[in-house]
Computed example of a mutant assay.
Amino acid sequence: MTPPIRVLVPVDAYDAESFRLALGYAQKICEKVGSQDVILLTHTKNQLSHTSLSRFLGPAALKALDKGAMALSWGGRLSARTMKTFRYSARNAVVIVYYAEPKIFDFVDGLTNVAGVVAVPDIAGEADAWVARWGAIVHGQAQQPPPSLINDAIFVRALETLSSVVNLTTGLGHPRDKDMANEILRILRAKGHADQSANIKSWAIRRGWRPDAAAELETLAKKIWSLKTKPSLSAIYNANGRYQHWQGEA
């Protein structure tokens, strides 16, 4: 399956224009990928009936969504889901993420078989990391290529070594994998590399890590770079040799 098409609508979520634009982008993506399914994703079911969405949708649409789905003018189907009721697979659907913020972005990044994601943030700036993570299309702006996220070739090579051996679906859940991540990050810190914890989570998600596993890697990096002194490498097997390998391959 091709990567999802990701779009940000940076218009006030309480302005009807934001919902109109989101539906329009969802239609375009569906037509491009040959899908008819659009899923409106919110944190809770109450956000459909007790927020601006209730005005945008109207009573008839809300009733139809409550029963299952409603027909869209172009032939598509709109259904509503929450983070609790959404299944792991999106069935080649386009997901409109409304009142989006980092937690729900991580949730949707963990879904499979998504044809597209159209996001309307709750607060300006809360989608910045997600846009950078994927190089998402931003409404009203020229599309930019995804940034590298980590501009340290040796650091990236070290993380790629980790990604090649860790089970990306479980991340650091296995003690052996966590030990390896801990060693790699400690070597990098001891060798004077700058803290990359602000972008390490997005880097990992982009390369196939589950969002919760990537968050655990971020937490570990923050812990290591918060140490008052550089860590000792005396107990890490072949620390210098491993570092030289990353230097040579970077």
Rank of each mutant, 00 (worst) to 15 (best):
A221R: 01
T44N: 10
G68R: 07
G208K: 03
L159S: 00
G241R: 13
I5D: 12
S54R: 14
V165S: 12
K45M: 10
P146N: 01
H139C: 08
A60N: 13
A190H: 00
V117S: 09
G248F: 04
Q27H: 11
H43E: 14
N46L: 13
L57D: 03
Q143F: 08
D37W: 10
H43S: 13
L233W: 02
K222D: 06
Q244E: 14
V114E: 07
D152T: 06
R77Y: 15
Y25K: 10
K228N: 08
P4Y: 04
V95L: 09
A136M: 01
S18D: 02
F105K: 12
R207L: 02
E31S: 09
L65N: 05
E101T: 07
L21H: 06
A119Q: 00
G116T: 03
T229F: 04
I137G: 07
R176V: 15
D109H: 11
S226T: 07
R81L: 07
P59T: 14
A61L: 03
A250D: 01
T219H: 10
F155A: 10
L188I: 01
L172M: 06
K63V: 09
V33S: 01
A13L: 11
G140Y: 01
S197F: 05
T82F: 04
W203H: 08
Y237A: 14
N151L: 13
R206W: 14
P102S: 07
E218F: 05
G75S: 04
T85H: 07
F56R: 06
A71C: 10
R81E: 11
D152P: 02
L72I: 01
A198I: 11
L53D: 04
L78I: 01
H43M: 09
Y88I: 11
D177N: 05
T2V: 11
A221H: 02
L48P: 06
A22M: 00
A129L: 12
N238V: 06
Y237S: 12
Q143R: 15
H50F: 13
W246Y: 10
G116A: 01
R157H: 11
G58N: 07
S163P: 07
V95D: 03
N113K: 10
G173D: 15
L149M: 00
K32E: 12
Y98A: 11
I224C: 04
I29V: 05
E126M: 11
W74H: 05
R189N: 06
S226P: 03
A127Q: 09
I224Y: 07
R81Q: 13
P147W: 07
E101V: 02
A181T: 04
P59I: 11
F155I: 10
P3F: 08
M1T: 10
V118L: 02
V131I: 06
N238H: 09
T219F: 08
A119I: 01
L162D: 03
V156G: 02
G110E: 08
Q247Y: 06
V11M: 13
L62M: 10
V117L: 12
S49Y: 14
N199K: 12
H193N: 02
L78G: 03
V156R: 07
A213V: 04
T2N: 15
H193T: 04
